[in-house]
Design a protein around this nucleic acid. Structure first.
Lengths: 108, 108
DNA sequence: ACTTACCGTAAGCCATGACTTACGCAAAAG
DNA sequence: CTTTTGCGTAAGTCATGGCTTACGGTAAGT
């Protein structure tokens, strides 16, 4: 059920932007917030949410905190999506087959 | 940018439940809503959101509307997540390497 | 020791959205 | 033609959560 928390986090655009800034590598909070349309405390709150969802990790470096993406945090969501995609696809194909049968025999 | 709408939809638990009920195959609205903790109009609204995000398709069948999962709708989200996962992983490995170097040379 | 830099948290405001009830419309049933 | 079934939509209520300002706390610099 841990994919749910990941989805809750990734639903917010600002949070996605924060995460995408971390894609290039670890960053301290101030550098993440620089040039963004929200305040630094807002970024801190988003980072807290991301950390709680297991999507990022943090580490102290002097007076500043460096955040990194946790690749393992994305794994459950990937797994859920994959399973979902496979099952939906097979069900979809079954439906196509059923539809083809109905096309041959339109009025039972 | 179409993955954003998918994430917005999947953030809602009720919407996920609706989508998971469709995993077993196409269903009319009433059958989807049956046994759920929200009213049928609520399910209709969620289905509208899911359709707008391209995650489901609908088709008329008499007085009832049958909804199905659209596998293609999940593809963009999968692609975005994959790319994200790959880049984050490589950056993570780079960070591990950098950390190892720092461990060898702790005080520059 | 004092100041400065960097960050997390608290309190409060406000917009978004999820839900309900009530209503209207189309297709099947009678 | 009338009734019933199945569904979408409108209006209104209420909770959730994202943002800001203000504050406190720790580590480095001087």
């Amino acid at each position: 059920m841990t994919y749910a928390k990941a989805l809750d986090c990734l639903a917010d655009p600002t949070r996605r932007k924060v995460l995408e800034r971390l894609r290039a590598g670890p960053r301290p909070v101030g550098e993440i917030a620089r040039g963004m349309s929200v305040s630094r405390p807002a970024v801190s709150q988003h980072l807290k949410a991301l950390k709680n969802a297991g999507l990022v990790t943090d580490r102290a470096a002097g007076t500043q905190r460096v955040y990194s993406i946790d690749p393992q945090g994305l794994a459950p969501l990937r797994a859920w999506l994959d399973q979902f995609w496979d099952e939906a696809l097979s069900a979809f194909q079954q439906e196509v087959a059923r539809d083809a049968r109905h096309r041959k025999d339109p009025k039972p």
